[in-house]
Design a protein around this nucleic acid. Structure first.
Lengths: 156, 156
DNA sequence: CGATAGTCGATCATTTCAATCGACTTTGCA
DNA sequence: TGCAAAGTCGATTGAAATGATCGACTATCG
């Protein structure tokens, strides 16, 4: 039931890019900067950001002063979308996928026990990720980062 | 976020074995029979049943009239246990796994957005699978199989 | 023109997955 | 005792996915 590195890096990078957008609206951030800050191999990250761009989540500009930015406001980007873009369907098995259904090899899909259970798992995963908007995630992150720095700031 | 074939086959086979136990208590069922009924490659199924046996979910007897049966009552077998046995941890990423934690490459685990979101996913998956007992699953299956056959039986 | 930065396709090594093979052991029964 | 049925076990295989890297190309700005 693992998320791939691509899916993992995509979310981590997106949080960083969204964070930057929050600090400096209308700015662009470079692949190399994102790679540094997130600890993601730069060349690999390149592929991932490109996929996010082609999927309409990011926009980019080439050349000097170029870089990436969110293609839409963070409240319109949800994690389900992002993970699907890089990892494919969220469903644990294809016969319970709403977005990429494929039949199973079991004798009868209607009464298949595995399917009954995995349908519930799929629904639970989708309920979380399809409703997790980037703005909410970023504010969660911000809250935690803030409580780290202020911890010693007030401790004079 | 896929379940492997092993995990898939394990649950399907277990439902079949549990079903048999319900119909004929104290009986053993052969690999070949399970393979036929569930449409699972026999030699592959062999590996899986062996793992379930070594994991304490099934018991077996060799030789003539040998076969497999549940090692404990179906209300003591949960799907989380079964899936972990064949597929490893349920968590989407190792840094949110309770049973197999491993650190991440992100700069700060505490404030990592990916981790915040995936923790929730992990909890949701575990809440479902660790509480899904085999007896409940089997009765769900039975209900659906029954409604299939009686559909025409009453339709005289 | 030249530096910067994204784009794109190809390639690669490793691991995982799904499955199969063959030899072996245990068991029950004739 | 010997044979057939059935589980056990280790090795191997082929294919695919994964994670990553390389190098050439293109757009943009000053």
């Amino acid at each position: 039931m693992r998320l791939s590195k691509k899916g993992e890096y995509a979310v981590r990078a997106l949080v960083e890019i969204g964070f930057e957008a929050h600090l400096r609206p209308n700015s662009l951030i470079q692949i190399s900067t994102v790679a540094e800050r997130t600890n993601i191999p730069e060349k690999f990250l390149e592929q991932i950001l490109l996929a996010l761009r082609n999927g309409g989540v990011l926009k980019s500009r080439r050349g000097v002063e170029g870089g990436y930015a969110l293609a839409k406001p963070p409240e319109e980007i949800n994690l389900g979308e992002v993970v699907r873009l890089l990892d494919g369907p969220l469903a644990p098995i294809p016969c319970v996928s709403a977005t990429a259904y494929e039949p199973c090899t079991c004798p009868d899909e209607e009464s298949c026990g595995l399917r009954i259970a995995m349908k519930q798992v799929r629904d639970a995963i989708c309920a979380i990720l399809d409703n997790y908007k980037l703005d909410r995630l970023i504010s969660e992150v911000q809250k935690r980062r803030a409580s780290k720095t202020t911890a010693w700031q007030f401790d004079i």
